[in-house]
Design a protein around this nucleic acid. Structure first.
Length: 397
RNA sequence: UGGGGUGUAGCUCAACUGGCAGAGCGCCCGGCUGUUAACCGGGAGGUUGCAGGUUCGAAGCCUGCCGCCCCAGCCA
């Protein structure tokens, strides 16, 4: 049999001549996922996977397990997600959980080593954010509606004025009715924000950051990547600098490759895949049309139809893992953008204040952790990269 | 929200043109075995998603409803 304690797997051999009759009988009755205590002798043995195994001398059942629903055969996704609390114990799910852990740890290590401060931004917010239609609403005492945060960015801009280099890292919520392999209604996003950094500085930080996360996974998750049968050669190519292409050039390029999109539209999922396939590492697409992007992005002085932003597209069809931009730091221009998008300036009073009292060039980005983990681990759907995914049709378990 | 698909045993699926509802795995009983998703023999297990309709006869055809999956949009 194989036992598991989280640190790894160990093959255990129960041999009739080495155990009491009672222990032998227990061994005969053992079922899948029984919780047990085993005492014995560790031996090298070429026949064991891993080369080491344990000859049991004592065997105690701590918690029996009858009719464990997840058998070693095939199951469909609906069934597995209904039993997510038990599915977590499967080898591939354990490997994914470990990769996720190391990515989380690497995020904190990267920013700490570069002098960033971690700031906790609120999950309950007023109506401030990007698009009101995508917010989860709840009652908030006498103050009316509150919403679950869909970004910490605006808050982290305020913190950057205090601390220079900051990041927030937490769950974010989008009430989008999205049903694709790249979407969850609750996901984790890390959002750095840097004072006195422009759009170019921002992309340099992004390529260093993404490369660091990949390198960390390659270093610490060898066994887990192997368990998932992930071909790591594409990951080994992920080193700075990443190629940069303007939105305008990207449109021309995907048109050449057969897409029918035109200047002014956002890049669709197919367009992103088409473009990403042209490169052997993540690629930056810069300076999108103003109309398809958020109000807080700074206008591009060289081409006022566009803004100083960038997306970062992961290779192998994993799509957008980062959206970032230089922020509009001029009070009057920002106010004009807020009005142009028919947002309520009163709700953004504090955000406008940041431009009123010692404004400064600053930039930042948001990286979707589940998308990043899915790409690194090579799994087709991001819902497996989080222990209990929240999707439009799933709230259990 | 739109397009496509799907729903049959605990699980994964089959069942020709509408003609006796089946297999593998799991489970139970027995055997064998340094195993790797072990193997061999036997057994139990069904309101074919729900409601109605057509028909001598419906898992299959028709109508309505429900669930799920994939893709698109939105985005990270």
């Amino acid at each position: 049999m194989v036992v598991r304690d989280g640190s790894g797997y160990l093959q255990v051999v129960v041999s009739k001549r080495d155990v009491s009759e009672a222990a032998w009988n227990i061994g005969q009755q053992l079922t899948q996922e029984t919780s047990l205590a085993v005492t014995g002798l560790v031996r090298e043995d070429a026949r064991s996977p891993g080369g080491v195994e344990l000859t049991a001398t004592e065997l105690t059942v701590l918690g029996p397990s009858l009719d464990f629903p997840i058998t070693p055969k095939e199951h469909g996704t609906s069934f597995l997600f209904e039993h997510r609390h038990l599915w977590l114990r499967s080898r591939k799910q354990v490997a994914l959980a470990k990769i996720r852990h190391h990515v989380f740890q690497a995020i904190h290590d990267f920013f700490d080593a570069r002098g960033f401060y971690h700031v906790s931004t609120p999950i309950l917010t007023g109506s401030i954010g990007e698009e009101a239609g995508n917010l989860f609403a709840t009652e908030y005492f006498d103050l009316g509606q509150a919403y679950l945060a869909q970004t910490g960015q605006l808050y982290v801009e305020a913190a950057a004025a205090a601390l220079g280099k900051v990041y927030c890292f937490g769950p974010t919520f989008r009430a989008e009715k999205s049903k694709t392999r790249r979407h969850l209604t609750e996901f984790w996003m890390v959002e750095p924000e840097v004072a006195f950094a422009d759009s170019s500085d921002n992309m340099r930080l992004q390529e260093d950051f993404v490369s660091y996360l990949v390198a960390r996974a390659l270093d610490r998750c060898k066994e887990d990547l192997k368990e998932l049968e992930r071909d790591v050669t594409p990951l080994e190519r992920v080193v700075p600098p990443f190629p940069r292409i303007s939105y305008t050039d990207a449109v021309a390029k995907v048109a050449q490759l057969g897409s029918d999109m035109t200047w002014g539209q956002d890049l669709g999922g197919d367009d992103e895949t088409l473009l990403a396939k042209e490169y052997d590492r993540p690629v930056f697409v810069m300076n999108y049309p103003k109309e398809v992007k958020a109000f807080y992005m700074k206008e591009n002085p060289d081409d006022p139809r566009t803004v100083l932003n960038n997306d970062c597209l992961a290779p192998e069809g994993y799509g957008e893992i980062i959206g970032g931009s230089q922020r509009e730091d001029d009070h009057d221009r920002l106010l004009a953008r807020i009005r142009a998008q028919r947002l309520d300036p009163a709700a953004y009073g504090w955000y406008l204040d940041l431009r009123k009292y010692g404004t400064f060039v600053h930039s930042g980005f948001g990286l979707g952790v589940e998308r990043t983990v899915a790409w690194i681990a090579g799994v087709p759907h991001i819902r497996e990269t989080i222990a209990f995914p929240r999707q439009i049709h799933r709230l259990y378990p």
